[in-house]
């Protein structure tokens, strides 16, 4: 049976992981390669590396980093952050990334999704969408790491992205992100029911039960989290045992 996936996300700046971790057994927790390899050993199903490096100049180091990660890691990984054209994608995939995630650039030019899917196949194109529920109860798409509001409704953009050739949707609720109060079950469930491609839930995972809920109630294909894994508040082996006990299929 196809398993539900647990995906730690690592933020990268200038080639280093950004958020602190409290893993005492790592020589260098700031090294994305070492941290990623540790998650792989713990049983993470996939990893996402999100590059938040500000300058174009320093982004060149990302390709080198991707190569180092690919050399070390024996599970799939996605690279995202600031990807805006086909040649970015070429460089990342050629150096061993399995998938790329694209956000703002795809929104500005949805044709980019189509041309990327044609060139590389939908399976390696993850459409990341940041959304926020406003006072009118509607979910709106935000760009530029959540700084820019749009008038686009979340479902309309997700549907369009799917039609243009995205292979997966990575949906982050800004209302839930960082709260550790659980995932945005309602909108996630709507997306899962509506779209024919896998949906990855992001934002709000803080306790074991949140992961059970997002798989059972929203039926997502994968759940992503960052700090709770980095600070070892939830360890991946413990999470997987818990999900198995709750009859959720996960890789053992």
């Amino acid at each position: 049976m196809l398993c539900k996936r647990i995906i730690p996300c690592l933020d990268i700046k200038d080639g280093r992981t950004v958020k602190g971790t409290n893993f005492v057994d790592l020589r260098d927790a700031g090294d994305p390669v070492e941290l990623g390899a540790m998650y792989a050993r713990q049983g993470a199903d996939e990893l996402v590396f999100l590059d938040i490096t500000a300058t174009v100049e320093k982004r060149k180091t990302l390709v080198e980093l991707v190569r180092r990660i690919a050399r070390e890691l024996d599970i799939p990984f996605t690279v995202g952050g600031g990807i805006s054209n086909i040649s970015d994608v070429h460089a990342l995939l050629d150096n061993g990334a399995d998938k790329i995630s694209i956000n703002t650039a795809a929104f500005r030019d949805p044709g980019l999704l189509r041309s990327m899917a044609k060139e590389f196949g939908s399976q390696c194109i993850v459409l990341a969408i940041d959304i926020k529920q406003e006072d009118d109860r509607e979910w709106y798409v935000y760009l530029n790491g959540g700084r820019t509001k749009t008038e686009m409704k979340a479902m309309d953009w997700a549907r369009r992205g799917c039609d243009e050739g995205a292979g997966e949707i990575l949906l982050t609720s800004m209302n839930h992100d960082g709260t550790r109060q659980g995932f945005a079950l309602g909108i996630l469930k709507e997306m899962v029911d509506e779209l024919s491609i896998p949906v990855i839930a992001s934002g709000g995972g803080g306790e074991l039960v949140h992961f059970k809920d997002v798989f059972q109630k929203a039926a997502v294909d994968a759940a992503l989290a960052a700090s709770i894994f980095h600070f070892n508040e939830i360890s991946i082996p413990v999470l997987k045992v818990y999900l198995t006990e709750n009859n959720i299929p996960v890789r053992k």
Partner: peptide, 22 residues
């Protein structure tokens, strides 16, 4: 086949299959 066919009670398949299987 991603569509849930007639008489099938299972949810439609997501295509492609992405992830770990046994």
């Amino acid at each position: 086949i991603s569509e849930s066919g007639e008489g099938r009670t299972k949810a439609p398949l997501k295509v492609p299959q992405v992830g770990w299987n046994n």
